[in-house]
């Protein structure tokens, strides 16, 4: 056990371990790159704040979330969209192709005009390698006819029709930075414990 009774932020990595593997017979993938020795990253934070933020009508999902985060001086977060209506949604669906190296890739962007009512979503907020904010968000919405619409959102092109609500779990004990993962040959968020925590035993 990696108990941390002291009020201290810490990080650890899990290596190959039968305790986290799927059952025998469940299909797993052969990715194009060599498997990373790290199979799980955990970053534990103490005293992080939770915020309820507005998703402002007329703004994109990205500008609305980032405006609140700038004001709160939060740069890394878990994001829960609770209530939103979109006038426009741009998103990717997932696809496979023998012509691309990764086992899966995204389609060209799909565009849908609203109103589209949010059903559920999950997201994290971090930065690109160049230090620009980035939101990784998957969301499911429903249109006027009751049909589901959703996928991997492009938050900079998802327009809010009404003011809604999101919850923000600050993760400022760490940073999330997009970088290539050599195992999957795809850019993903890499978690890094913040420099403030890099002194002493973590």
């Amino acid at each position: 056990m990696i108990a941390d009774s002291a009020n201290r932020n810490r990080a650890w990595a899990g290596g190959p371990d039968s305790a986290t593997r799927p059952d025998p017979g469940v299909p797993v993938l052969q990715h194009p790159g060599p498997p990373d020795a790290v199979r799980r990253n955990v970053l534990a934070g103490h005293g992080q704040k939770v915020w309820r933020i507005p998703l402002v009508a007329g703004q994109t999902l990205q500008t609305s979330v980032l405006a609140a985060m700038r004001q709160l001086k939060v740069s890394t977060a878990g994001l829960g969209l609770q209530q939103a209506v979109f006038s426009h949604l741009r998103y990717f669906e997932i696809a496979t192709s023998p012509d691309v190296v990764p086992v899966a890739h995204y389609t060209t962007p799909r565009d849908r005009t609203g109103p589209l009512e949010l059903i559920c979503a999950g997201a994290t907020v971090g930065q690109t390698a160049a230090g620009q904010p980035a939101i990784h968000c998957h969301a499911l919405t429903v249109d006027r006819a009751g049909h589901f619409v959703g996928g991997h959102l492009l938050p900079q092109a998802c327009m809010l029709a009404q003011t809604g609500v999101a919850w923000l779990w600050a993760l400022d004990h760490m940073r999330l930075v997009i970088g290539d993962d050599p195992e999957i040959c795809t850019p993903v968020f890499h978690p890094i414990l913040s420099e403030d925590n890099l002194h002493g035993d973590h």
């Binding site: 056990m1 986290t20 498997p35 990253n41 878990g78 195992e183």
Partner: peptide
């Protein structure tokens, strides 16, 4: 506490969450 967990390819979702809880 709050925990960010990244689960790498081919690792099981529930088992990874449960193992993290056990470790922590």
């Amino acid at each position: 506490r709050i925990f960010y967990v990244r689960i790498h390819p081919n690792e099981d979702l529930l088992r990874s969450v449960e193992h993290t809880a056990r470790e922590a």
